[in-house]
Design a protein around this nucleic acid. Structure first.
Lengths: 218, 218
DNA sequence: GCCGAACCGTAACGTACGGTACGGCTCAGG
DNA sequence: CCTGAGCCGTACCGTACGTTACGGTTCGGC
């Protein structure tokens, strides 16, 4: 298990100019993938290579900063889980599912995951950990309170929130992420996402919805 | 959608020596990932670089040949789906699930998927397509007959085999593959795999098992 | 025993790119 | 106006690695 919490504050201590540079790097990363060059970033960002090295140390530093910068942009507000009924729970699950599908099918996510996967196992940096922390683990951290609330309200029945979450994750993502990462052209239209999200939520409820009579709301 | 069927025969037209070279390349790929060098492969395989270039054209050719060579090694016998009852269907599902978990958690699969993901989107080769074709799509091709047989026998109830398969895929793989690819240390012991496989099969049956009275066996 | 093909080992070539150095420009502070 | 910090643009350096070239060895066919 990684569970390395990246320096959450690093992303905040950036000047506007630095953010602009990282945005340029990010756009280039989406276009070129891991074979972007320092010179290309400098050109795109209209800055000198010297500045890149002064600010980010080396190529890996730039990549890491870019990934963290993108991560800091997608931090979202947690859902509050008060007054839960079956309808609002279903809506929450669908919301999580469609949000996640939109994320993993976005060009940015695909590009970032590609470079992180490529770098994983080389030991040089920990891009993989950063991506994991701000992706899969952040999702779990936000969804689990909802699941717990559902259990408290007697709507859900599960032994372990982590296990339940992982099943939800599987029902939502299925083969989508790996296919996209491997270059499969999988067009996820807005309506397809909505349909998949609804299906995933229903299947999750079918598996973990409390049977009437068992564990009734107290 | 890719669905590019790689030259199935290419993997067969190899001399023993060439297979040995590809095995060396494969081992090196597992150890070093995409930053393996032609010189290193030549050294490991005790062959000259000239030979590598003569046989495989260039670096991408060598990589592609290596991936296809590995793919040709894991081709398995299809399961026959005669005399299906609920027990044998469950056993089949568990078997597919545990086989798949073993594959995606193997060093070889992780290494191959990493380089394929890294190369995807660069347009230079189609490693991604090869890996997909021999992984996720091959699995579907082998599992679907079982699902269809289950439906014929009145044990399963689903509208579309492809959709049912994708749900099965999600229930089995969950977050395992992406976490491993991103470098998360996820120890999958033999017993954990067995447990996960059983859980996935049960969940699949809970979702797609035919309700008694509906679509009874004819 | 001779020949050519195939292959090994190694050396050499060319280039792309990470990283550094430096001259010039801008601008804030004094 | 002077100065120095920060940055841009560009030239430069060193190296790693893909690719090619070549001399030497093995070996099957005649």
């Amino acid at each position: 298990m990684l569970h390395i919490v990246p320096d959450i504050e690093t992303a905040e201590a950036l000047t506007e100019r630095q953010k602009a540079v990282l945005d340029a790097a990010l756009r280039l990363l989406v276009e070129e993938g891991d074979q972007l060059t320092m010179a290309a970033v400098a050109r795109r960002a209209s800055c000198s290579k010297e500045t890149l090295y002064k600010w980010f140390g080396d190529r890996d530093g730039l990549l890491t900063a870019t990934v963290q910068w993108q991560a800091s942009k997608v931090r979202v507000a947690p859902v509050d889980a008060k007054g839960l009924d079956i309808a609002s729970l279903t809506a929450s699950l669908e919301r999580f599912a469609s949000d996640w599908l939109r994320v993993i099918s976005s060009d940015t996510s695909i590009a970032l995951n590609r470079v992180a996967v490529g770098h994983a196992g080389s030991g040089k940096d920990n891009l993989g950990a950063v991506v994991l922390e701000n992706g899969r683990f952040a999702l779990a951290k936000r969804l689990k309170p909802v699941l717990e609330a559902g259990r408290q309200s007697g709507l859900l029945d599960f032994a372990d929130a982590e296990t339940a979450f992982r099943t939800f994750f599987g029902l939502v993502a299925r083969d989508v992420q790996i296919r996209l990462l491997l270059g499969d052209r999988l067009e996820l239209t807005e309506v397809a996402i909505g349909g998949d999200a609804a299906r995933a939520a229903q299947q999750f409820l079918a598996l973990f919805g409390a049977k009437p009579g068992r564990k009734a709301s107290n």
